[in-house]
Design a protein around this nucleic acid. Structure first.
Lengths: 152, 152
DNA sequence: CTATTTGCAAATAATTTGCAGCTGG
DNA sequence: CCAGCTGCAAATTATTTGCAAATAG
């Protein structure tokens, strides 16, 4: 029986190659940190997570790299009212919950709601616009900031 | 028959007073320009529109003023992927169409869709979150950048 | 080998701050 | 009058740029 060990970062390397990007250590580490951080990190948060283990990696490289990732469809850019861009590795059509009091951004996706909205826009047309995607933005405040938000 | 002339800026002055803000020339001119510009201006666009007629009014004051307006519920803040905040004088629950190729932000509101979404969130609950509002973000590109977007 | 990518430092852009002087209520 | 505004300049923050050295393919 042959056991194929899941090679470190193999999934990320593959994604980079598929996108036609050179597979560099910096890119792997940056993508990995975004996936691990999960909640839509800022450039600063990415840099803070990886700088100790990669002392020569510079902040400028993080800026350039996330921009490259966005341009090649590996990340999407999420703007906030706090003046810093954040980066989202989930590429399927999904919405976000913005917590005003904790600055968290939480993914929101509901199949039923999504279908409802897509059906609606099959009927109602917006002329002279090529729609790329439609997302829902839910603004609110966490009631208990210590606890998580639970989508039922 | 008594004809009451619509006093200049009277509506804006009223809004400011109601919000408990002092009615200053700067605030009137800034709010007026936002209403006139209509399409979710940046601070720079506001400033450009009013600077000639108000040479002593400074850019810093525009920044402070729009922030005051947001904090007092007279404007809402709209973030973009272009690194500049934009300001929206329409306060009722409505969505935005973001044109990637022209950087325009166009209001979108449909009663039926709005009801549909609100009803949905009466059933599905998001625990530990006090929802303030739910808006739709429609991303796309204008097909003919010269022409307007027409919502049918 | 060579087109890309990276690191670094300097530049730019957007926004905020501090504070003295002005002004609306 | 005086708390709240404004103007101005300097400070801060986020991001971009330019370029020489490094490196993936």
């Amino acid at each position: 029986m042959i056991l194929v060990l899941s090679n470190n970062y193999s999934h990320i390397k593959e994604k980079l190659s598929e996108a036609g990007l050179k597979v560099t250590h910096q890119r792997i580490v940056i993508m990995d940190s975004i996936l691990r951080l999960d909640n839509h990190p800022t450039v600063e948060q990415i840099f803070d997570l990886i700088r100790d283990a990669n002392p020569s990696l510079s902040l400028g490289t993080v800026y350039k790299t996330v921009e490259t990732f966005v341009n090649n469809g590996l990340l999407s850019k999420v703007s906030t009212n706090e003046g810093q861009m954040r980066y989202d590795p989930k590429l399927h059509n999904h919405g976000h919950i913005y917590c005003g009091n904790t600055s968290e951004i939480i993914d929101y996706y509901d199949e039923e709601l999504n279908d409802m909205i897509l059906n609606f826009f099959k009927k109602k047309k917006v002329n002279n616009l090529k729609i790329k995607n439609i997302t829902l933005q839910i603004n609110g405040d966490k009631i208990d900031p210590e606890k998580d938000i639970l989508i039922k």
